[in-house]
C-alpha cells in the first residue's frame, strides 16, 4: 500500500515537472511593460492640479504627445505663471522671466546648428501649427530645430506657446530688426508690451 502511494507521488511529480518544462518552453520570458499612470483617465480636478504643477517646458513636451493632450492643457491650465513671457530675438528662445531668474520654455535652433549624435537620435518630429518640426532636449532645455530663418521659427513657436497657455507676450529682447519685432508683437496681440530690452552686443562671428 505504502509503496504504491509513493509510486503515485513520484509519477505525479514527474508529470508536473514535464508540464512545467513544456510551459517554460512555449511561453517565452517577455518582460512586463512598465506600469503606467494613465493621465487622461484621471478625474477632472486632479488632472487640472497636475497640469498646474507642471513646468512650462514640460507642458510644451506634453502638448506634442497628441491632439488630446494639447487640448487638455489648453482647457485645464489655470495657475498663474511665474514671471512674464519673454521672446528673445537675441538668443532665439522663449522664457518666463522674473527679477531673479529665467525659466526657459523653448529654444529655436537653425538646422545648420551643431547637434550631437545622441541629440540627433533622440530628436522627434512633432506637429506644431500644422508644421512638422524636430524637437530634442539639450542640456535640459527643449530645443526646436527649424529649417530656414530662425526668426520665422521663433515666431511660429511664439504663436504655438501663447495659444497653448492662452497668454500674451509681455517682454521682448531685441538685437537687430528691433522695430520689425516690436511691430510684429503689437500686431499679434492687443495687450501692450511691458518691457523691451535692446541688446547692443555683437556676436563675434557676425563682426
Amino acid at each position: 500500500m505504502t509503496s504504491s502511494f509513493s509510486f503515485f507521488r513520484l509519477l505525479f511529480w514527474i508529470i508536473s515537472v514535464f508540464f512545467q518544462t513544456i510551459k517554460s518552453l512555449l511561453i517565452p520570458n517577455i518582460p512586463l511593460p512598465p506600469p503606467h499612470f494613465p493621465l487622461l483617465h484621471v478625474p477632472y480636478l486632479p488632472l487640472g492640479r497636475i497640469i498646474d504643477f507642471m513646468e512650462p517646458d514640460a507642458l510644451v513636451s506634453l502638448s506634442f504627445c497628441s491632439r488630446k493632450t494639447h487640448s487638455v492643457i489648453k482647457t485645464h491650465r489655470r495657475a498663474p505663471f511665474d514671471g512674464r513671457l519673454c521672446v528673445s530675438g537675441y538668443d532665439n528662445n522663449l522664457s518666463f522671466r522674473t527679477l531673479q531668474n529665467r525659466n526657459c520654455v523653448l529654444n529655436v535652433n537653425s538646422s545648420s546648428a551643431f547637434i550631437t549624435s545622441e541629440e540627433r537620435e533622440e530628436m522627434e518630429y512633432v506637429r506644431m501649427n500644422r508644421l512638422h518640426v524636430g524637437v530634442y532636449r539639450s542640456n535640459g532645455n527643449l530645443v526646436l530645430r527649424w529649417h530656414g530663418d530662425p526668426m520665422g521659427g521663433l515666431k511660429e513657436t511664439t504663436d504655438y506657446v501663447t495659444n497653448l497657455f492662452n497668454i500674451d507676450v509681455s517682454e521682448i529682447c531685441v538685437f537687430k530688426d528691433a522695430i520689425k519685432m516690436i511691430e510684429w508683437v503689437n500686431r499679434r496681440q492687443k495687450t501692450p508690451l511691458k518691457k523691451v530690452v535692446y541688446t547692443n552686443c555683437v556676436i563675434p562671428s557676425e563682426k
Binding site: M54, A58, S61, C65, S66, T69, V126
Partner: peptide, 24 residues
C-alpha cells in the same frame, strides 16, 4: 510628484509614462 515625474522628459518618454496614444 506626478508633475515632477514628467519634467525633463521628451514627448516619446511622456507617452510611455502616461500611456498616451499618439494620433499623428
Amino acid at each position: 510628484i506626478m508633475a515632477s515625474r514628467i519634467t525633463g522628459k521628451s514627448a516619446e518618454q511622456i507617452r510611455t509614462v502616461l500611456n498616451i496614444k499618439t494620433d499623428v
